[in-house]
Design a protein around this nucleic acid. Sequence first.
DNA 1: GTCTATAAGGTGATAGAC
DNA 2: GTCTATCACCTTATAGAC
Lengths: 183, 183
Amino acid sequence: MDERRTDTREQIRTIALELFAEHGYDKTSLREIAERLGVTKAAVYYHFRTKEEILVSLIEDFLREVDDIVGWAASQPAGPATRNGVLLRYSDLLEGRTTQLTRFLQEGQASIRDLAAGAEMRKRIESLVGILSVADGAEEARLRARVALITLHIGSIAGPDSEATDRQRRDAALRIAQELVGR
Amino acid sequence: MDERRTDTREQIRTIALELFAEHGYDKTSLREIAERLGVTKAAVYYHFRTKEEILVSLIEDFLREVDDIVGWAASQPAGPATRNGVLLRYSDLLEGRTTQLTRFLQEGQASIRDLAAGAEMRKRIESLVGILSVADGAEEARLRARVALITLHIGSIAGPDSEATDRQRRDAALRIAQELVGR
DNA sequence: GTCTATAAGGTGATAGAC
DNA sequence: GTCTATCACCTTATAGAC
């Protein structure tokens, strides 16, 4: 019954994600996180042993959801319908709460590159790329798959052109991604 | 005749670019740059007043070359041929020496975002997006243009699939980009 | 479970000698 | 033109009181 340890831990995660998405991981300090939450740095260290551990806990949520998608795809016959299903599911994943994380993952790759969690992320992306590639081993097919995923990322992040709604941007990105992996 | 002030300044730029591309801007310290060059930090500060100034001088080279492309496009009639010309020129720009900068710009967006040079970069990208958009004002067209540029970036950075040559990757990226902005 | 106090070290940057 | 020495500050992280 040690469920729900207080929600301080969850609040730290929420604030950290906000700040990571806003200024990047490197430029966000523990002092900033603690201050924004109204506690001391030591309080943060009670819940997470290192700064990196906060990031890892955030990324792990994302990895689990990607694993679900990869797992689903493995249970389906390879083909256009499955590829399309993967794109749809991945697009849904990037919506809502995950959008901040998406922005952070897309813009802050340099911060994550050398971390263990970064290697794990790359593995998952490679799994998706493998599934989304029309022709196995063909270089262009893999590049297309990679670009399709990035398109969904870009589509989920608000751009400088504020005219379109989130939904319009997301749908446009999905159409482009579908086209890229060959409908 | 104060041409060629010693090439120390140029060496600092070269090493800094290497390190920025490798570890990111934030994680690269002046100490690291100075040590790699075999001089002291103070020596670096003689040539650049701040760390940011090193980065800015690197980015400015890139901006100038993008400006050339934008200028060329302005002198051409709008249409598929001009769009294709822009893609070709931009792809060439990303080749060779600029590849390190490309990687840095693509992966280290978070570091640059809040800098004045970052705002300048975004302006230039927006110019290119405007030129590459088939239909003015259409959201999907702009997204397509944006993705086309990113595709060229990705194509110029070596991926985890080492089988293909640089040229093959670059050409594949160019084909995809051309398709995205409607040939 | 959260605090104060502090450690240990790295950072960007400057002043002034050589 | 490059050095040594140093500053002021911020960082992540820990020990131990409350």
